[in-house]
Amino acid sequence: MSRLPTPITRPAPRTPARPARRRGRREAATAWAFVLPSVLVILGLSVVPVLWSLLLSFQYSDLLTPSVWVGWDNYRQLADDPQFAQAVRNTLEYTALYVPLSIGLGLVLALVLNRRIRFAGLYRTLLFVPFVVSAAAQGVLFSFILDPEFGAANSLLHHLGVSPQGFLSDPGQALLVLVGISLWSGTGFCVVIYLAALQDVPRELTEAATLDGAERRHVLRHVTLPTIAPVSVFLLLWQTISALQVFDLVYVTTKGGPLGSTTVIVYFVWEQAFRNFTAGYGAAAAYVLGVALLVAAAALRLVRRRGDRRIEGATS
């Protein structure tokens, strides 16, 4: 038996200790050989850079000449940088619009598609397809459709008698248009996740409630939604994290413009590090966002734990 990997709780093997230990050592060596490549790549390219980034954020670095220690200067400068403040505002606005809209729309559509409606499979496919399209392709496609002069969107508006719009070239509209494009590609993800969660809601539960005379909307509110609450929390977390980190779409469509109206935090970081060659300053901005993400995740954890306790309390 001692040859088998034994759980920690099992009593000591009956075979003599020495060969077992040697075998254990060989086993450990094999295991290390198995995990070593992954450990090197994953930890080497995440833990090391994260610490390096932290150091960098206290330095002046142009990525070429040796960097100089500047203490808190980068952070102090960030606090007074109107461009960074605008980037934070834009990011928050984008997140505040995209996250609730994608989750809400995703939930409604999933609930409808879950009613054994005809063509449900086709609808699901059509709603989900944009999710696999890359941000670069989305950006190029929508820059074309929304081109103020040659775009199909303005041509359509022309037929409807609406004056042409600036879309991505209008500082007042650009961020909203980006939210729209993101909804086009991201709603299907929420639909699919919710559909899978709805399939796991025990049918007996909803049927029992219906038999007890509960109306449909009451079943929804008191049975279905609480059951899928963990999935909602997951989506909230996931969508928020991806929204706060939006970059590709901005780079392809607007490059942060017009007039900085779509400069988001990651774009700001990229621009500082790889355009202006002020990498330390960029790293400091990245750390501000990193800490914000950490706080958001921790807060959600806390909310979820409290929610779990409430559910446990209700069932016991």
């Binding site: 090391v48 850079p49 994260v50 980190q245 990229w270 590090a273 990193g290």
Partner: peptide, 8 residues
């Protein structure tokens, strides 16, 4: 997050 690791 990616932006924390991209420069290093």
């Amino acid at each position: 997050p990616f932006q924390l690791t991209m420069i290093p």
